[in-house]
């Protein structure tokens, strides 16, 4: 049964727009990473499911990797990057784990040990020239076993008017990702923020300290296992539970 629903999930994600209209949408090779398992009709995690569909099981996957042609400028970026990495003696196959084209956006999944080299190449290669990094955003995917912590970078090329995304993952047991502050100094605060909220340790950062939370804070608040907190409040005579205690649907 879960296979069926998988198919539905992946076709749904194809509703995104093309990057440049005339480009052929990239084809999916295989299903993406599993990020959740859903139960029942409504996905409510408390209370009974009286719909009769309580036995329903659904697997949620992120969009999977794509194969060529990617469409738009994505092919050119991929070609140039692979060529430039080969020149440096880095095998593109190992550095770029997979390429995902989804909703008109390109995501390059980079092996963490190659991140600084890839970032430097993307910045300096004349055909790539991604001069501006718009920071790093963390994502915690507890169900993505062995790749629980993701760091997502968006690089913008002002020269060519392009934008791509780099995604790097690290296991929860070894939450280390090389810092790119030496390539993009703007990531100084962004990496501190991601460390603060997700506990990703950016190796080589000049001063990786907390930036938002107090210095002596325990835990990493944006991780999924970290509770939101809150207290029940009374509204028009009724007790409203704290936001993370309310009945929710997914």
């Amino acid at each position: 049964m879960s296979e069926n629903v998988n198919e539905n999930t992946s076709t749904n994600t194809n509703t995104g727009q093309d990057p440049s209209g005339d480009a052929a949408p990239a084809q999916r090779e295989k299903a993406g990473d599993v990020i959740a398992q859903r139960h029942g009709m409504f996905g409510a995690d408390n209370g009974g499911d009286t719909s009769g569909y309580g036995g329903l099981r659904r697997t949620v996957r992120l969009p999977g990797s794509s194969h060529r042609p990617y469409g738009g400028y994505f092919d050119e970026v991929a070609d140039e990057l692979e060529g430039a990495l080969e020149e440096q003696g880095i095998d593109p196959e190992t550095a770029i784990e997979k390429t995902v084209i989804d909703r008109g956006e390109m995501t390059l999944h980079i092996a963490r040990e190659h991140l600084p080299a890839v970032a430097r190449t993307l910045r300096d290669d004349p055909a790539l020239r991604f001069e501006l990094c718009t920071g790093v955003s963390g994502v915690h995917l507890p169900a993505d076993t062995g790749r629980e912590l993701h760091a997502v970078y968006h690089l913008r090329s002002l020269t060519h008017g392009r934008i791509i995304r780099l995604e790097v993952s690290a296991p929860d047991a070894d939450p280390r990702i090389p810092s790119v502050v030496s390539v993009y100094p703007t990531n100084d605060w962004h990496e501190r923020e991601t460390y603060d909220f997700f506990g990703i340790v950016f190796d080589g950062h000049p001063a990786l300290t907390r930036i938002m939370m107090p210095d002596d804070w325990q835990g990493f608040p944006q991780r999924k296992d970290y509770p939101l907190g809150g207290i029940p409040v009374e509204y028009k005579g009724a007790q409203i539970p704290a936001p993370d205690q309310r009945r929710s649907y997914s």
Binding site: L62, E105, T134, Y249
Partner: peptide, 29 residues
């Protein structure tokens, strides 16, 4: 499910939004 990045030119500069969905009724990140 999926992720997107949208950016608008706010008076202060590039306001970027990185958004991840897990297919649910709430933003995943």
């Amino acid at each position: 499910p999926g992720q997107v990045y949208t950016a608008v030119e706010s008076p202060k500069g590039e306001l970027g939004v990185h958004m991840v969905s897990d297919g649910g009724t709430r933003p995943y990140r």
